[in-house]
Computed example of a mutant assay.
Amino acid sequence: MYAPLFVAIGGFFGAMARYLISRWAARRSPRFPIGTLIVNLLGSFLLGWLAGSGAADTEKLLVGTGFMGAFTTFSTFNWESVQMMQQRQWAKVVVYLAATYLCGVWLAWFGYRVGR
Rank of each mutant, 00 (worst) to 15 (best):
F67Y: 00
L41P: 11
Q86G: 15
L20S: 08
V94I: 13
A99D: 04
F110W: 12
W90Y: 10
R27K: 08
A8S: 04
F67Q: 01
L37K: 04
S53E: 09
M85T: 04
L107R: 01
L42I: 08
R27Y: 14
S44E: 01
G52S: 08
R18M: 10
R31N: 15
S75A: 13
M84T: 05
R113Y: 12
V7H: 06
F110S: 12
R27L: 15
A108R: 01
Q83E: 15
A56P: 12
A8C: 06
M1T: 13
L61F: 01
F32I: 09
A8F: 11
C103W: 06
P4K: 03
T76K: 03
V39T: 02
Y2H: 00
S81I: 08
G10S: 00
Y19H: 12
S75V: 07
Y112G: 15
Q83Y: 07
G14H: 02
Q87M: 07
P30N: 09
K92F: 15
A108N: 02
L102V: 08
K92Q: 11
V7S: 14
F71R: 03
F74C: 12
A55I: 08
Q87H: 04
S29P: 13
A55Y: 08
W90R: 02
V82Y: 13
W109N: 06
Q89T: 04
A51N: 09
V93R: 07
G69D: 01
D57N: 07
S22F: 05
E59G: 12
E59L: 06
L47R: 00
S44A: 04
G14S: 06
L5M: 09
T58F: 13
S75H: 04
V63L: 03
G66K: 00
A98P: 05
N78D: 10
Y2R: 00
M16G: 09
A17S: 09
V95G: 11
M85E: 07
V93A: 10
F71I: 00
S29A: 10
V94A: 14
S53T: 01
W109K: 02
F74V: 04
G11S: 10
